[in-house]
Write a protein that binds this DNA or RNA. Structure first.
Lengths: 230, 230, 230, 230
DNA sequence: GATGAATGAGGGTTCATTCAT
DNA sequence: TATGAATGAACCCTCATTCAT
């Protein structure tokens, strides 16, 4: 499917075909961002892309697969955008991660609402793509906190956490991005603590305790935020 | 829906009509519980109900409205099922509320998954119904904690809270209802604290502090749960 | 599906619906008579019938079924047209039967060519209809000759016989119906003798011998036909 | 097909092209043997052949022509396979011819059913190929019997004869090749007599009488077969 | 000669809704 | 109120063919 290292250099035609594929993908991203799956027709997508609608099946083997590809694409972009540097404390890095997350969503509002935050079921095949994004999000946060994202007791709480971030982001976008990104991050951090405590309540591990203390320490060093529970 | 305050006793025809309406509503609830909106046809619903499909438009003015009605119905049932007695502490009552919530979801699994937890957008008109449920859920929790659900600083965190409960419930149902309802409630309570702290972080009100202390008090009296933040 | 004796008299609407059904059926018969299955579109049929094309699926559940219905219809007509009186010798009755057969084919030339003589496979479901016609044809001839059409040794020869009649009829229609119907019948009779002798060769039964003698007797009493094998 | 009498030795490219052509032709024969014309796509054929589907139009000028070519090819093979030696009486040679016919059909069952016996109309251009086969078959039999296959009075009966052989062969293949080839040949011979008598009935020529006597003589010398008309 | 990307007409079917009965 | 025949827009997909490379 993808060209390997031993491939001959792509010919002009292959290049053109790839371009067409991208045009279709972009057009689909655009359309699916604005209207629900069922309301977007392949004809519209092809028209947006300026190509014959038959090409859609040629390149993507049907509307469903194209949709899934779109979801994968936007989520890949999200993942790339939330890769953050390793500087600073874990808490600081989580904050930067979340901040980048919100920035990305704000920069791709339509796509964010319809292809990231609201996981419209659409179709089985796309569902997989949604799930992958979610798992990836959890893995990212866990890594920053030195937690094992596969740990069973973390599954539910972390899922809850990412979902809470998404839902709040959704409302935030609807509200015209108020309150500030910083406040949104604060909210998320509070929920993150809640999530970890939930997990800790079920199975109190050393790693969890360390992560929680890390988060608390970070919070205290930010004087504008009230000390927890005091 | 229509009969006014001057109500004459309903004629036989009105009675029969109401029965037909209910048959359609029940059939629709059943069908929409099992398949996404777009995959359910009015023909199927009418067939399930054993009536002519033309009646669907007659009684509900179209598929969309019927769907919204279905969402309203199931959510009304949910609301009724989570009305709890006023005994005990606020914390205890919140727990009972959540417990009842999970029980209801477990008892109506299909409907829960498709009509409550996953707010398939479906259509603008149904979206309203989903939103109403969510608002109602928030109001319920707030009332138990003596909080004003209209308070702006509570909007986002509380939305996050209900959403987190729903998402975890969704996974829980998928997992065959493991872990126990009690553990699920614990999870939710931890997130509730997180939500309130998030709100308190933004605008520290007396009511919030009281609610938080209430929750902490409750938690301490349940020795198996670890003390917060230690 | 069909109304039974206890049915209430059909309402006007049922009557109208049945009329529509017939219009569709007639239009389909006409179209399928002129062009092969694959070249006839449902749109054309509906247009010919002067109704919406959606009705085609409504009444017949798809093009394939409509086609099969058409085949059944024309073959039913053929069967009706070849019911002959019981007067005369067996040989005379067979001749009348064949004569009627040719007359019918000539009167419905297009349909005959495409829906009777050339059993375009079209589709599994239509194949059944073609087969039924053939079986019926065999049964008819056998009955006239006091033969058991289920007799295994008769299967192949009789199949061959009806097929030979059909093929010759096809050429006959192509030739502008020359030679005369009488000559065509003579041809068929000769093949019928061939068929029965083939069967007799394999399993010489009394019934077969009787039938053969019957045919020979008939032939001798028609002086213009040459005595066999002299 | 193209290279003329002045033939230079074929270049490598011509050779390769011819190979491609053959690959395509073989793949097409295989595919058309298994599914009706309309259900076979050029893409499948090209894939089977392992070449680009564009080549199909290049080499054969379209699907229809390729199909006709396939019919010609298989029928050419059939013709070759039924060339028999000149030993023995006319009757014996006819039998050998028919025997070879059945053997070939059995050895190429799929192709036989779909490309020889059942003359699916497919398309005008293929029809010609089917007709040619049929004419050739008639000519072959006539030659063995010293009959002029162009004789008008023979047209219809002989057509009937070959068609009867084909139809019985079709059933025979469906029945798992029962009864034996010998019995099938017997059947055919009986029909051949029927055909010739039909022709003789219309126009009693010396050649026909000779042929009939030849066949009868052959039959008598095969004691297990009952004498005709006794 | 060979490739396969591109075309786009054309297909059959589904389905929510309407409306005469 | 109930029926279900009728409508026809809209859908996605298939596919033979073309043609630049």
């Amino acid at each position: 499917m993808s060209r390997t290292a031993t491939d001959k250099p792509p010919t002009k035609r292959q290049l053109a075909a790839e371009q067409t594929r991208q045009k279709l993908l972009d057009a689909a991203l655009d359309n699916f961002s604005r209207r629900p799956y069922a309301e977007v027709t392949v004809g519209e997508i092809a028209r947006s892309a300026g190509v014959a609608h038959g090409l859609l099946s040629h390149h993507f083997n049907g509307k469903e697969n194209l949709y899934a590809e779109v979801v994968r694409k936007i989520n890949g972009q999200l993942r790339a955008a939330t890769q953050i540097t390793t500087e600073g404390s874990a808490e600081a890095r989580v904050r930067r991660h979340l901040s980048a997350h919100f920035d990305f969503l704000a920069a791709h509002e339509d796509a964010a609402v319809n292809l990231i935050l609201r996981r419209a079921e659409a179709t089985d095949i796309a569902w997989e793509a949604f799930e992958a994004t979610r798992r990836e999000g959890i893995r990212g946060i866990c890594a920053l906190l030195n937690l094992d994202s596969e740990e069973p007791s973390l599954q539910l709480p972390m899922r809850g956490f990412v979902v809470v971030c998404d839902e709040m982001a959704l409302q935030w976008l609807r509200n015209g991005r108020s309150p500030s990104t910083g406040a949104m991050v604060d909210f998320c951090m509070a929920f993150l603590v809640g999530a970890l405590e939930a997990a800790y309540g079920l199975t109190p591990t050393r790693a969890l305790r360390a992560a929680l203390e890390e988060l608390r320490r970070g919070r205290q060093s930010r004087p504008e935020a009230p000390a927890a529970g005091r």
